[in-house]
Design a binder for these strands. Structure first.
Ligand code: MN
Ligand code: MN
Ligand code: ZN
Ligand code: ZN
Lengths: 161, 161
DNA sequence: TGCTAGTTGAAAAACTTTTTCAATTAGAAT
DNA sequence: ATTCTAATTGAAAAAGTTTTTCAACTAGCA
């Protein structure tokens, strides 16, 4: 699974005639292996274990690249933080656990009727849509049924806001 | 229209027992009057014309406040920039022009079926959703039918990425 | 007319992202 | 294998965004 995503991204780079460098390999592997959304800083930290020389700048540049080609998607959180997550294939959205950060990808967003209706009403030519859902994953739900406090965090707490 | 929104926000502040200060008034007026999404910095710049002493910190704090009470919504752009826009009433989403920044609000997002289906499939308890649409508004479409270059920008270009 | 909890702005810090630029390198062409 | 070249890299600095602190201030109320 992770391997598939990874090879997908690798092939993608080749197709687009971009070089497959050691720094990029390290970054690709981290993102493909992660089952969570990761911030650029977190990706940098993890990838450095494989390629200690890696600079944060390269992480940003690689994320731009991968986002452009659609291999990665930026996830927006309501508090303003940004994370990145690997995209399986094609158009996709994410459902993120607000407690532990686990994410599920889904493709069957049937926005076509809504978009058509809005285009008719407003006259806009709609060509981009962003949809994200958030809630507690099954694990987190069962661990604290109507919990307020967080029991475990796989993603380290952000001091950001 | 703008007046309605404005008074709505004012009343809201009172209801929540928050003080209606001069700095906040200036900020409220700017947001209510704007027909565009505005960044904190832009809000600051505009509100200073009414209340020159205003600090940017207060803008951030007021935006947090208004967001919490639902009078304002943060709009996320694909390039990572954040802006704020007044909310009419209740749950709402925005359709933003990618060329000039004009925005339309819409409420009839029928995500219930999608959400129910995903809850069944994944076991998540979905309680937050974020939906934003982007495209060219009628004006921008007609001014440059298949235009690539931007003709006018109501919102000043961001140097941010 | 005070009282007080809530609010403010300056300054500094923390954090995030981009720009520059000289050095390096992947991949294609000999 | 060797050469060539455009793409890529990392350090450093700059730019941009957001938060924290804290002493001074003030809206709303008694
Ligand atoms: Mn965002
Ligand atoms: Mn909705
Ligand atoms: Zn979870
Ligand atoms: Zn427009």
């Amino acid at each position: 699974m992770a391997t598939l995503v990874s090879s997908g991204m690798r092939d993608g780079l080749r197709e687009h005639r971009r070089k497959l460098t050691r720094p990029r390999q390290a970054i690709l592997e981290i993102i493909a292996a992660a089952d969570h959304h990761l911030t650029p800083a977190e990706i940098h930290k993890r990838a450095r274990k494989k390629y200690p020389h890696l600079g944060l700048v390269t992480v940003y540049r690689t994320l731009d690249l991968l986002t452009e080609y659609g291999y990665v998607q930026r996830v927006h959180f309501s508090d303003g933080c940004h994370s990145y997550i690997a995209t399986g294939q094609g158009h996709a959205h994410h459902l993120v656990c607000s407690n532990c950060g686990r994410a599920e990808e889904f493709e069957d967003c049937d926005l076509a009727p809504l978009i058509a209706s809005l285009q008719r009403k407003t006259g806009y030519e709609i060509n981009v849509h962003m949809l994200e859902l958030m809630g507690r994953c099954p694990d987190c739900s069962s661990r604290s049924p109507r919990g307020v406090t967080q029991i475990r965090r796989t993603v380290p707490p952000r001091n950001h806001k």
